[in-house]
Design a protein around this nucleic acid. Structure first.
Lengths: 177, 177
DNA sequence: TGCTCCATGTAACACGTTACATGATTGC
DNA sequence: GCAATCATGTAACGTGTTACATGGAGCA
């Protein structure tokens, strides 16, 4: 269970509603970790029951049903404990790899359009990340420790999309041979 | 549902038992896509019920309970259909990223040992993949289309582990600042 | 009035993990 | 005889996805 900890990390920086979390889930985490609102509401309910977070009606005079969540001391203790647990690396596990392998076994089946689509998709994301990088981490500005780590996380997303875009191009070349 | 299609791809190349599939799940897929034997047995049962695969007792004279599965025409039809479906890219979603983000918010918490552990882990995998590459795809040998695609998939795994090893090193440097 | 967005939720299901169980074969 | 490995399975649970539902607020 790690969605809970990801949400607490977001809430630590800014108390938010489930709806807000669902939409952004926090800039530098949400870019590469999507969660549906159902998942988030369910998890928030569990966390509140466990005493990790607490909620109050949003300060809008009861106009909306919005609830603001924030992290309790127990939640931060739990987060500190969890951070130092060992992690298992995430598998690659991209379906395109399986399709490619199937194409090798019984193909050629015409994967080129899909590869071009994927390449465009990764390049679009790459452009979006780079725009954010220029906006939030301009060159030559000295940054706090926190900002430097956040920048590192964004750069990881950039590296990831670069790698997939390059991979798509290379694989297209291979299929064209 | 894509485990089914991954399994069929493996079975197309070599009819196998659930046990065999669980152990190797096929070289160039299994390296970066792990599945437990329970998942595989459950999936094989479903696929047989759907008429995608068929099984027979292994030709060992009933000595073991081993069953050999192979792909039926309906299964191959389904696989061909599935291969051309559009794919969604896999999220990065590595827990280390969340831990790092939490460290930025409430840290420093001492993530260095974990990062060194992860770096060593990725480098070990990298070495294993490279050994396989040298064994199965020696330089200067001309390869079939199928082998070239399989080589591409292995190289993807190599790129992936390289990227994570490099990332670990860079992040360690950042935390040491 | 009707549309879109805000904001939260229930229910059912698919997929993945962990624990436990069973019995046969192989090797020391 | 005992342990390890082969080979298959059941059960329970945790996480993630999809469909559907509800009602208020803001705007043309």
């Amino acid at each position: 269970m790690s969605l809970a900890h990801a949400l607490m990390t977001s809430l630590l920086e800014k108390p938010s509603s489930g709806y807000d979390l669902a939409r952004r889930f926090d800039k530098s985490i949400g870019f590469f970790w999507h969660a549906t609102h159902q998942q988030i509401y369910r998890e928030l309910a569990r966390m509140e029951k466990a005493g990790w977070i607490a909620s109050e009606a949003a300060p809008d005079g009861g106009k909306t049903r919005k609830r603001l969540y924030q992290v309790c001391p127990d939640g931060e203790t739990e987060l500190r404990r969890w951070v130092l647990e060992p992690t298992a690396p995430t598998d690659l596990r991209d379906e395109l790899m399986v399709r490619l392998r199937a194409d090798a076994a019984i193909g050629p089946l015409g994967l080129e359009p899909e590869l071009r689509r994927r390449q465009a998709l990764h390049e679009a994301r790459l452009a979006a990340y780079r725009a954010i990088e220029q906006r939030d981490f301009p060159i030559g500005r000295s940054l706090s420790r926190e900002a430097r780590i956040q920048h590192m996380i964004l750069k990881t997303g950039i590296m990831y999309e670069e790698a997939w875009a390059r991979w798509s191009a290379e694989t297209l070349k291979l299929l064209a041979e």
